[in-house]
């Protein structure tokens, strides 16, 4: 009997790698290399927007007049690099732990110097308004910045519905306080006196730039970014843009903001972006526009009022901004 012995080097047709697999492998390796380059700051080949945008789709009108055409910070970075100390002080803590917060149902208490105080459901607050998309720069006091496409409502439109009276000189905002849902609030040695609170002068709040955001990248705002609604005041350092708001109060006396209470010499009430006034611990002259790279850090010059001087500089006429920082 003749037994055909196949030499060990002979490959059968089934051993041939199908072209699709071969191509997939190249694509895979391309991905690995690109991912490696992404960390080093060489041009990113991976499209970070490939990370699917989470949340419910919102319908909105784009507002080019209120938008920058600077390159947007990828969704992935906007939603995984956050300061939201209610969930921990690490930048990736909010993305990891914000899921523990329930935002549905949600209500906001409105009180103080206004004609229509009360507790409003999230739906009641947003229903009368049409959503807009505004692409704003966000400058963090820590000297990094992002460009984020927000979806939301002009703050003035929302506040007017509560009919603030003539004694309403300031508006105060407060974040949810619920240690069961917010692990950062359970920390024993936190110097923050929860709940987180912020405030604006009435004319600042009524400025056309002030925005109440309920979404980003076209969908409902992720919890780590301050769901279901958060403030966006783009000419001020990021900490003024308070997240997950549960209380709005109109008042005559100036409220204190949380960071001002912790370190008044470092964080002022106004907190306007200003390259001429350094933070005591670091310079504010420049910022790292994220995503930044290791080999090519994306440094840019910081602009006064974060580049929104045209819209807001008049609010501070005659004020010494080195004193009222």
């Amino acid at each position: 009997m003749l037994i055909k012995k196949r030499p060990s080097w002979a490959l059968s047709h089934s051993d041939v790698t199908p072209e699709s697999v071969y191509l997939d492998r190249r694509r895979f390796m391309g991905g690995v290399v690109a991912a490696a380059l992404a960390g080093t700051g060489l041009p990113r080949l991976v499209d970070a927007a490939a990370v699917p945008v989470q949340g419910e789709s919102l319908s909105y009108t784009a507002m080019p007049g209120f938008s920058t055409d600077e390159e947007k910070t990828p969704y992935e970075d906007v939603t995984r690099y956050n300061n939201f100390y209610e969930f921990g002080t690490g930048k990736d803590d909010p993305a990891r732990y914000a899921e523990e917060m329930s935002v549905d149902p949600w209500s906001v208490t409105v009180e103080g110097e206004c004609g229509r105080p009360g507790t409003y459901s999230f739906e009641d607050l947003v229903k009368p308004h049409e959503y807009q998309e505004r692409i704003y720069r966000l400058r963090c006091v820590e000297a990094w910045s992002m460009v984020i496409p927000w979806i939301g409502i002009p703050l003035a439109d929302m506040l007017k519905r509560f009919e603030p009276n003539s004694r309403a000189k300031y508006v105060y905002f407060e974040t949810l306080y619920d240690p069961d849902q917010m692990r950062g609030q359970r920390s024993l040695f936190s110097t923050i006196d929860w709940p987180y609170q912020e405030g604006l002068r009435m004319d600042e709040a009524m400025n056309e730039l002030s925005f109440m955001a309920v979404g980003l990248y076209g969908k409902t705002v992720p919890k780590q970014n301050g769901a279901p609604m958060r403030l966006v005041v783009p000419w001020k350092y990021g900490f003024k843009s308070i997240k997950s708001i549960v209380k709005i109060r109109f008042q005559e006396e100036r409220p204190k903001s949380t960071w001002e209470m912790i370190a008044p010499q470092e964080y002022g009430f106004y907190a306007n972006v200003n390259p001429e006034v350094d933070h005591p611990r670091w310079s504010q002259k420049r910022e790292r526009r994220l995503p930044s790279g290791l080999l090519s850090p994306n440094w840019i010059e910081t602009r006064k009022f974060n580049g929104y001087g045209e819209q807001v500089a008049h609010l501070y006429k005659g004020m010494d901004l080195t004193k009222y920082y």
């Binding site: 991912a35 490696a36 992404a38 960390g39 080093t40 690099y81 930048k91 990736d92 790292r288």
Partner: peptide
């Protein structure tokens, strides 16, 4: 660094 998992502010 190699896997690019340092986030958007690697420095």
């Amino acid at each position: 660094i190699v896997t690019g998992s340092l986030g958007p502010d690697p420095g």
